[in-house]
Design a protein around this nucleic acid. Structure first.
Lengths: 203, 203
DNA sequence: GAATACAGACTGACCGGTCTGTTTTCGAGA
DNA sequence: TCTCGAAAACAGACCGGTCAGTCTGTATTC
C-alpha cells in the first residue's frame, strides 16, 4: 500500500513526463524549456527538479519508456504462431503503429535519433534495440527460408532492408504532414517487399 | 573581372559556410552558436552579419546548396541511357553517396529533416525535392513496366518504397557509426528490392 | 517536529543580433 | 603617379532576453 505522499508524487511525476512529451514533440529538445514543461504540467521548478536531476535525465526516461513499450509489443507479437512471412508482416507492420501510439507525436522520434547522435548514453539506448530488432528479423527470414517460403538471400541484408523500410516510411509520413498524423502507410510497402522476397513462381 | 573587394568577400563567405557546416553537423542547429561558427571561420560577428541576415538564413542556404548538388547529380544520371531497372539502381544508389559527399557529415541531414518539421520555409525546401524524386522514380518504374521488366505493382507505391529504403539505409548508417563515415551499404539493399520487383521467372 | 513534496524568486552563463569603430580597397581628380 | 574621400568589408564590445539549474521558504503528511 502506498502513502498519500507517494501517490501525489507519482501523479506529478507522470504529469511532468506527459507534458515533456508534448513539448519535446512540438518544439524539439533544445527549444522546449524546462519552464514551459513545468507550466504545462502545472508544476513549479522546484517540483521538476525534485523528480528529475536534469532535463537530459527526463528525456532519457521518456526514451526508455518508449523503447520498453516497443519491446513489449514486439515480444507479444513474437509469441504468436504462423508462417514466417506472415509473422514478419505482422511484426514489421507494428513499427510505425507503435511509434504513433507510444510517442503520440512522431517528431519526438526524430528528436530521439538526433540526440542519440550526440549523447553517448542516449545513443546506446537507441542503437541497442535497433540491432536487436534487426537480429530478430534476420532470424525470421532465416526461418522462412528453411520453410522454403523465402528466397535464398542474405538474411542479415534482408533484415536491414526491412528496418530501412520501416524507418523510411516513418520519415516520409512525418515529413508529408509535418508530424500531425503519421503512421498510415507502411503496410503496403512491406507487402510489396515481402512479395519480392517470396520464392519465385509462388504467386 | 572581380574586384579585390569581391574576391575577399566571397572567400570569407565561403569560409563561414564551411565552418557552419561542420558546426551544425557536430552540435546541431540550436547548440551551434554563431560565435562558435565565427571563431571556426576566423571571422568576427560583424563579418558574419555582413554576409548573412540571420543564423536561419545561413542554414537555409546550406540546405539549398546541398539540394542543388543532389539535383545536379540526379539530373546527370537521368540523362544516361539503359534499361529502366538499371537506371533505377544507378539513380537510387546515388542517394547516400550524394548525402555523404555533399554534406560531409551526415548528422547534418538529420538536422535538415528536424528543422524542416518546425520551420515552414525549410519544410518547403525539403519536401519539394523528395516529392520530385518520388515522381521521378515512379516514372522509371512505370517505364520498366511497359518494358516488361518490372511486375505490375502500383508505381507510386514502389517509388515510395525506394525512397524509404534510401532514407532508412541512410539512417541506419548514421546511427551505426554515429555519423563518422556513412553511405557504405545501400547498394545491396536496393539490389534486393529490385530483384523482388522483377518479373517472376526472369532470373 | 521531521520528512516529503513542492513553489517561485534568483543566478550566472550564454546567445542571437546590433552598433560603433577600424581597416582595406577603389576610383577620381590634381 | 600620388592623394584622398568614400564605399566595402569587416572587428569586437555590447545589449536584451532566455535558459538550466539553485536556493530558500512553505504547505502537507506522517
Amino acid at each position: 500500500m502506498s502513502t498519500a505522499h507517494q501517490q501525489r508524487s507519482r501523479a506529478t511525476r507522470a504529469r511532468i513526463l506527459e507534458a515533456a512529451k508534448t513539448c519535446f514533440a512540438r518544439e524539439g529538445y533544445d527549444a522546449a524549456s524546462v519552464a514551459e514543461i513545468c507550466q504545462q504540467a502545472g508544476v513549479g521548478k522546484g517540483g521538476f527538479y525534485y523528480h528529475f536531476p536534469s532535463k537530459q535525465a527526463l528525456f532519457l526516461e521518456l526514451l526508455n519508456g518508449w523503447l520498453a513499450e516497443l519491446d513489449a509489443l514486439l515480444a507479444a507479437e513474437q509469441a504468436k504462431a504462423g508462417s514466417a512471412p506472415n509473422r514478419l508482416m505482422a511484426m514489421a507492420g507494428l513499427m510505425p503503429q507503435v511509434a504513433q501510439a507510444a510517442v503520440g507525436q512522431l517528431p519526438l522520434f526524430l528528436e530521439y535519433l538526433l540526440q542519440a547522435l550526440r549523447h553517448p548514453s542516449i545513443w546506446k539506448a537507441t542503437i541497442a534495440p535497433i540491432r536487436r530488432y534487426r537480429r530478430l528479423f534476420a532470424r525470421l527470414v532465416a526461418a522462412g527460408q528453411s520453410e522454403g517460403a523465402i528466397r535464398q538471400v542474405e538474411a542479415e541484408l534482408a533484415a536491414r532492408v526491412i528496418v530501412s523500410l520501416a524507418l523510411g516510411d516513418l520519415l516520409q509520413d512525418v515529413l508529408e504532414d509535418r508530424g500531425r498524423r503519421g503512421g498510415r502507410q507502411a503496410a503496403g510497402s512491406l507487402e510489396l517487399l515481402l512479395t519480392g522476397l517470396e520464392k519465385k513462381g509462388t504467386a
